[in-house]
Design a protein around this nucleic acid. Structure first.
Lengths: 257, 257
DNA sequence: CTAAAACCCCCGGTTTTCGGGGGTATCACA
DNA sequence: TGTGATACCCCCGAAAACCGGGGGTTTTAG
């Protein structure tokens, strides 16, 4: 099946179930045993939205051992845009006497028969402008050398496929909202947050660890004024405290470190 | 030039200037007269970052008439993930005697010789996990029918090209800016700092705006214990307070929002 | 001209933070 | 089967941050 055919098959799918089996057929053609699509943008959730054609045993293990919070691929997905494979992940060395949870997770994957995995990150916006991050992993159970060869030739195709797959999934879900998985539904509309120069300055110094008094001295204004700017910024950011405000500012790209 | 060659050329570029001329050559091969990359995620900025090989006259007009705030393609980019062309934009009807600004902008583009344009949206995350949205437009000055034909055959290639181009641009910029990391002192290599599971958890909840009391309830431990973990994490991070610690944790990739 | 927003300063009561100080539980290895 | 390293859990008190207001002048945009 060529790339154009695959995209056509995806765009012709008319329900999430159909979409799932379409992709399954496509990735099987490439030699993968299955795939998992997972919402990667909400690390605070214990069980984010996911779907796919992975083995049930793997799903049970993943949930049971809380791998969402230790999966090193998910962590990387949140900071990158290009596909990568499990073999390229840098795992932490064991500190002390315990195996780090990341290593535990990868060992478990191996125990389930997965010898490699291709992870495709995709960050997208819904029709309200809200941003979502997704991770899709294609499982490989055959010879790792064949996997390497596949990557060289078809990495880009698989990347493109996922983009159109996610887009199609979003279109379907927004069309029939009733039984929609929550993640694919448009979240809060993206609000444009506009901080003034002073507000950005005080937040940036806060991010660098300066207290209100420090910042006041740096900027040559009174501590009370600094507090005023911070309060104003927190209101605009809809943040509950200074720490939250700084985190949001970084996430929104308002301040750079 | 094939797709793989084009991507190779992009990934081999070592500066923004080189990257720009690489892409220019590639899109000229497709028949476009030039391109403009623009940071589309900040509607609040009057002059967002942009670069490209557009005619200087067009750039002057764009700035002079403040087209950033009326460009209908930019507005659409913020809500979509697939490439589209100017012809598919739905422009508002003229009300009364005034031309809507969107129409004005498209008319101006035509006056500058552009008969069509392919717009490729791309939403990406940087190494801090911050989300950005970009718009790249490829200008078409030839026969519109040839443009339609090109889209059918090569839309996906152009889409993929942009993804790798943006990623490469980000890599170059973040490499060049690494001499001014105020928040990361040289000694703070990510590898040397290892937080335990609990330490990471309390820092992550702090970044999401939770107070010590909130976090204690979420984790089912006493507030004093939560404080203990935070203090321990701050020591390891060599951070002067919680806000600083959270900023550092994000910068080091230890926690995600 | 006028309204809105940026910028600057202040108070008082409440909550959080962060320097310390404790302790137990678990695990790999000898 | 102990031993040592580490994760994990709890407490105190002085200092700082938070949060709700209250002022005012200057700059910007319609």
């Amino acid at each position: 099946m060529g790339l154009e055919d695959a995209i056509s098959a995806i765009e012709a799918s008319d329900s999430i179930d159909e979409l799932r089996s379409s992709l399954h057929r496509i990735v099987q053609d490439y030699g993968f045993s299955g795939f998992t699509f997972i919402d990667a943008g909400r690390p605070e959730l214990d069980v984010p939205y996911y779907t796919g054609t992975h083995p049930p045993a793997w799903e049970r293990a993943y949930l049971q051992y809380d791998f969402v919070h230790s999966d090193p691929a998910l962590a990387r997905v949140r900071r990158t845009n290009k596909p990568f494979h499990w073999g390229s992940l840098k795992l932490p060395e064991r500190q002390g006497h315990k195996r780090p949870p990341e290593v535990k997770m990868m060992d478990a994957a191996r125990d389930h028969g997965f010898r490699e995995g291709l992870v495709v990150p995709f960050h997208y916006r819904d029709r309200l402008g809200a941003v979502h991050s997704s991770s899709t992993v294609f499982f490989w159970e055959d010879d790792p050398r064949a996997f390497d060869k596949l990557l060289i030739c078809h990495r880009h195709e698989l990347h493109l496929l996922m983009i159109y797959w996610v887009q199609r999934a979003m279109d379907i879900v927004s069309r029939d909202q009733r039984n929609a998985p929550t993640i694919l539904k448009p979240a809060d509309a993206a609000e444009t947050i506009k901080l003034t120069g002073r507000e950005k300055e005080v937040m940036a110094w806060a991010a660098r660890g300066k207290t209100v008094a420090d910042t006041a001295q740096i900027l040559g204004i009174s501590p009370e004024t600094v507090e005023g700017f911070i309060k104003q910024a927190l209101r605009k950011l809809n943040a509950s405290n200074k720490t939250h405000g700084v985190a949001k500012s970084i996430a929104l790209g308002i301040i750079d470190l």
